[in-house]
């Protein structure tokens, strides 16, 4: 083997978070952004995505299996840590905690989101602008989606930072600092995209 089970699992966990899950998240948010151009553009884009060839294979290998592994192993990592931000309130230690908190929030959100959209689609519902507008008719769901999506976006951006460290791309303190700024830029950019999209349905 390339290394022990822990080593390989940890590296796969890190890789899957960026490729394909991170790429999928960016694609998903960008396509959804069509909602800001009106119901028709959103429905056209959603229809294009759902009529991609080999859809179930794409979904299984790009989305379901990677997220399942990332989620299960991520929970294992999360509950292994003894968080100590109250005693060591350093920036990176705070990010370490926030990464774990947003990971768990994101998992809860994704579970609900998949049930509400993809599972309902499999049961015969049509996923379109009016379905989302329906969901967002409740202020609770708006808050839930805002928290869920922003957690997901933060978890991706900060996870990108640790991906660069875990694979040995950013080694020096300066490169890690620059990468903090870049990945937080990614967070802000994706946050703007997703918040604009959510408010387009309201």
């Amino acid at each position: 083997m390339a290394g022990s089970k822990d080593f390989v699992n940890r590296r796969i966990h890190s890789l899957l978070g960026v490729i394909p899950i991170g790429l999928f998240v960016v694609q998903h948010l960008v396509v959804n952004h069509f909602a800001t151009k009106g119901a028709e553009s959103f429905n056209a884009a959603a229809h294009f995505m759902e009529s991609l060839p080999f859809r179930i294979l794409l979904e299984t290998f790009v989305i379901y299996l990677p997220i399942l592994f990332h989620a299960v192993y991520g929970l294992y990592i999360t509950f292994q840590a003894n968080n100590n931000v109250s005693r060591y309130g350093y920036f990176r230690n705070t990010m370490f905690l926030v990464q774990r908190v947003t990971g768990v929030i994101t998992l809860i959100f994704i579970a609900w989101h998949v049930w509400e959209t993809r599972v309902q689609a499999a049961l015969g519902a049509e996923v379109n602008f009016s379905m989302m507008a329906d969901i967002f008719s409740s202020p609770f769901m708006i808050a839930f989606y805002l928290i869920g999506v922003l957690s997901a976006v933060f978890h991706f951006a900060n996870g990108l930072w640790s991906f660069f460290v875990s694979w040995g791309l950013t080694v020096s303190p300066r490169s890690q600092k620059v990468s903090t700024y870049v990945t937080m830029g990614v967070f802000v950019a994706l946050a703007i995209v997703s918040v604009r999209t959510i408010f387009a349905f309201i």
Partner: peptide, 30 residues
């Protein structure tokens, strides 16, 4: 690369902040 080794690091970087000798521990890890 064995169990309990390098991969268990979660990048909290408390070590480099706490080391009394100022050793660049997180640079070593990366």
């Amino acid at each position: 690369m064995d169990d309990g080794g390098l991969a268990e690091c979660g990048n909290s970087q408390n070590c480099v902040q706490s080391c009394p000798k100022g050793i660049p521990l997180t640079t070593s890890i990366a």
